[in-house]
Amino acid sequence: MTTEGLRFPNGTTVVIAVFLIALPCILPSLTLASEILVLATGALSCTLLLGSVGLLSFGQGLYFGLGAYVSAILIRDFEMSALAATIAASLAGCLLAAAAGLLIVRRQGVYFVMLTLAFAQMGFFLALAFPRLTGGENGFGNVPRTAIAFGQFALSNPLLLYVFLAILSFAAFALVQRIVASPFGSVLNSIRYNESRSEALGYDARRFKLAAVTMAGGIAALAGAMNTLMLNFVPLSAIDVETSERLLIASLIGGVGSPLGALIGASVLSAMSDFLSPIWPRWSMVVALLLIVTVLFLRDGLLGLGGVLRRQGKEMPNG
């Protein structure tokens, strides 16, 4: 991430808070606003990995899906409250990411990217192979609208649901900002710029990467749990590779230079999906073209649009 704005809380924190409050007022439906929150939180996990450590993950959908299933099972079969289920799902995401991360971070560069995709695919086939647990292709249904905690604040009220999701989402954004601003975040940043030099300085790059992968897994799982709260249902698509790709695309389009990028990317992508898909079912083509333009011309995503217009694009640091 850029060196300016490395404090927490800072102006970006305020902008994110205002954005979350303004979203339901600007948008035509509360559902769309909630969708944006879920996508933004999931995309944030990609932003954390790519923006701070320079790790490209095609597999965050695995943890998103895990979080979705774990929270759904806890709420439906163990009658847990929404808050407890969400926290448990996030921890489960951390655990799985730490376990998968042990194998993934041992390989660098291209292998890392391929492994994230392979593990995401494995998660999909896992969900498909155990339909008794996940509902298989039919999805995991009949998740009741529970209360947030202690039987208070029933989430059947759509505005309350949005507020709860917004608070969870804000917590994730604040956490990422806090991580990036910490000394730990500086080490991550140094690994992104020059991994071998960081190692020469005495930092064990693998352990730092593993820690980042673990946190990103927890955040993606949080987004999955938020998805369950929103839908009362877990479709099989929650864990497929396409979900991983959507999270990554949202973070890239917005720009990985700041957590704010995840929010912007998710808003643009969700709005496009909402407005374009009824008109043209193959609207993903537009997304693909936008992705090409972003990578070739807007290396800081839409967030960096102003900067690009002002001056020539600067070099990508992790080259």
Binding site: V113, S284, V287, L289, V295, L296, M316, N318
Partner: peptide, 24 residues
Amino acid sequence: RTYSLPHEAQILITFALAILAQES
């Protein structure tokens, strides 16, 4: 055009190409 860019950029461009092909 992407030969001189980092691997990440190549991955993302070819990934976008794959989406275009799949949608077509």
